[in-house]
């Protein structure tokens, strides 16, 4: 029985982390049709900024430890905003006429550049900022201890998911965005400022990526290469759910998270295959992903 609880809770925690990582990717793809290979780098930048600032806060500044959570989120917002604006305004906006494939390669080049930039800025020594993680203590659920920080992350993730959904489905901006997603040309013809929408979306996407990194930073050791590791995970979640769909990313994250948790508890040997196995199976049954739209065939 405890195993059953554990599978569920572990699955939820992992799924919420996956969703955090994948949300920015799917938002950017949904609106801009850019499969952003550099998404992992935004995650890494967020993690590094948060880890270094929180580390500094605890070592050189004797403030209220609970303020470090604000610092964590603040870092992510600033980092995401700065990186997003610089990349969108400095590079991407000149490239929007290029095809989808070339955009992948452009973001791949960005990934290479950002990886080394992060390394130059933060060094290769891992950052270990455990304080926000250790501060919240643990809860006993069914005889098994869980870190409260991880449980809180489930709630944060749910809020972000709900927020994205509400913006997209219940606001004016969301309506306009959906128009852009549905048919870019008609949206332009209707007087939608697509450039502005693109810039805004990209910045939101990078900020979500940075936020995922910042929220993960206290529970891991922030070291070079963490960005590259999450790219494929995020891709898989987004592809399973259907590219560009927020609901899809939620369901994709839950599916992958739960399956992985099941595997770890019941058959640890197959853990390595879970993510690609789920992806292959879902694509074999539904080629466009669970929530993906089939595109009209244009002659």
């Amino acid at each position: 029985m405890t195993t059953f609880y554990a599978i569920f809770i572990d699955g939820m925690i992992y799924a919420s982390w996956l969703f955090l990582v994948a949300a920015g990717l799917t938002v950017i793809y949904g609106v801009m049709r850019i499969l952003n290979m550099a998404h992992g780098s935004f995650y890494a930048i967020g993690a590094y900024c948060a880890a270094s600032m929180v580390g500094w806060y605890f070592s050189d500044f004797d403030g209220n430890p609970y303020l470090s959570y604000l610092l964590l989120i603040g870092c992510a917002l600033v980092a995401g905003l700065v990186v997003g604006v610089v990349i969108e305004q400095g590079l991407l906006r000149f490239m929007y006429k290029r095809n989808e494939l070339l955009m992948i390669i452009i973001t791949y080049a960005l990934l290479l550049i950002l990886e080394d930039t992060t390394k130059l800025a933060f060094g290769v020594d891992p950052y270990f900022t455990y304080q926000p993680y250790a501060l919240l203590g643990r809860s006993d659920i069914g005889g098994l201890a869980f870190a409260n920080y991880d449980l809180l992350l489930v709630a944060v993730s749910a809020i972000i998911g709900l927020g994205c959904w509400l913006v997209l489905n219940r606001t004016h901006v969301g309506k306009v965005l959906r128009a852009v997603i549905h048919d870019r040309e008609i949206a332009v013809a209707m007087g939608v400022n697509v450039r502005l929408m693109f810039a805004g979306t990209f910045i939101v996407g990078t900020t979500l990526g940075a936020l995922a990194g910042a929220l993960t930073a206290p529970s891991i050791s922030v070291s070079p290469g963490i960005g590259v590791e999450v790219i494929v995970l995020a891709f898989a979640v987004v592809v399973v759910g259907g590219l560009g769909s927020i609901e899809g990313a939620i369901v994709g994250a839950l599916l992958v998270g739960m399956t992985r948790s099941l595997a770890v508890h019941l058959a640890p040997q197959i853990e390595l295959f879970v993510i690609y196995g789920v992806m292959s199976l879902v694509l074999a049954v539904r080629p466009q992903g669970l929530f993906g739209r089939t595109l009209a065939r244009k002659i």
């Binding site: 599978i7 572990d10 992992y14 982390w17 993960t216």
Partner: peptide, 9 residues
């Protein structure tokens, strides 16, 4: 990086 499920197991 994330070892939640492994730690439970």
């Amino acid at each position: 990086g994330q070892y939640g499920a492994e730690i439970s197991a």
